[in-house]
Simulated assay, not measured.
Amino acid sequence: MAHSFLSDPASQDRTLRLTLLQSMIIELGLASANAAVPASIAAATAFLKSRVFVNIRDYLATRSQGPEALQKVMYPSKSALVRDLKRTRGYAPKEHVKASGLQFLLVSRYF
């Protein structure tokens, strides 16, 4: 049976974590055909944190609809995401996010 990071996010397996981060980059349409995805956890995390601004609740609800739908729920900047989170209070509980292994998508609500 294949082991996946999403089935056990508490796993300390670095290879699974890197695979998840790289998969997110591809799933969100951020990988270009001529550039390789980051090869380390730190680089992949930095890449995602600098380019992915999405409400985690919206991400989880939309990801089964494909990359085009995910692009529609992404915000153009961190400040746009923070403004929306403050306005709607539509954020996912931090404990749930960490239990899901998606803590790299967390954004501070305050600058």
Rank of each mutant, 00 (worst) to 15 (best):
M1C: 12
M1L: 13
F5R: 11
L6T: 13
S7A: 13
D8N: 13
P9G: 09
A10I: 00
S11Q: 05
Q12E: 14
Q12M: 08
Q12D: 14
Q12G: 15
D13V: 05
D13N: 14
D13A: 05
T15G: 12
T15F: 10
L16F: 06
L16Y: 06
R17A: 11
T19S: 11
L21Y: 12
M24K: 00
M24E: 12
I25D: 04
I26R: 15
E27S: 06
E27G: 03
G29T: 07
G29W: 03
L30G: 01
A31R: 09
S32H: 13
S32N: 09
A33F: 06
A35L: 09
A35N: 10
A36Q: 11
S40P: 07
S40F: 13
I41F: 09
I41D: 03
A42I: 14
A44V: 01
T45S: 15
A46K: 13
L48E: 05
L48V: 05
K49F: 09
R51D: 06
V54M: 05
N55A: 07
R57P: 01
D58N: 13
Y59H: 10
Y59Q: 08
Y59L: 02
L60Y: 04
A61D: 15
A61R: 13
T62A: 06
T62H: 01
R63P: 08
Q65G: 02
Q65E: 14
Q65A: 14
G66W: 05
P67R: 15
E68M: 04
Q71E: 10
Q71M: 11
Q71I: 00
K72T: 06
K72P: 00
V73Q: 02
V73H: 02
V73M: 01
P76W: 07
S77W: 11
K78G: 13
K78T: 08
A80Q: 12
L81Y: 03
L81H: 01
L81M: 05
L81S: 06
V82W: 04
V82K: 11
V82L: 04
V82N: 04
R83M: 10
R83Y: 11
D84G: 08
L85N: 04
L85G: 08
K86E: 12
K86H: 13
K86Y: 04
R87I: 02
R87C: 09
R87L: 08
T88S: 12
G90D: 12
Y91P: 00
A92K: 15
A92G: 10
P93Y: 12
K94S: 14
E95P: 00
H96K: 15
V97F: 07
K98C: 11
A99C: 09
A99E: 08
S100W: 01
S100Y: 00
S100R: 12
S100I: 02
G101F: 07
L102M: 04
L102W: 00
L102E: 03
Q103L: 05
F104R: 03
F104N: 01
L106N: 05
L106F: 10
L106D: 10
V107K: 03
V107H: 04
S108I: 00
R109C: 10
F111I: 10
F111M: 11
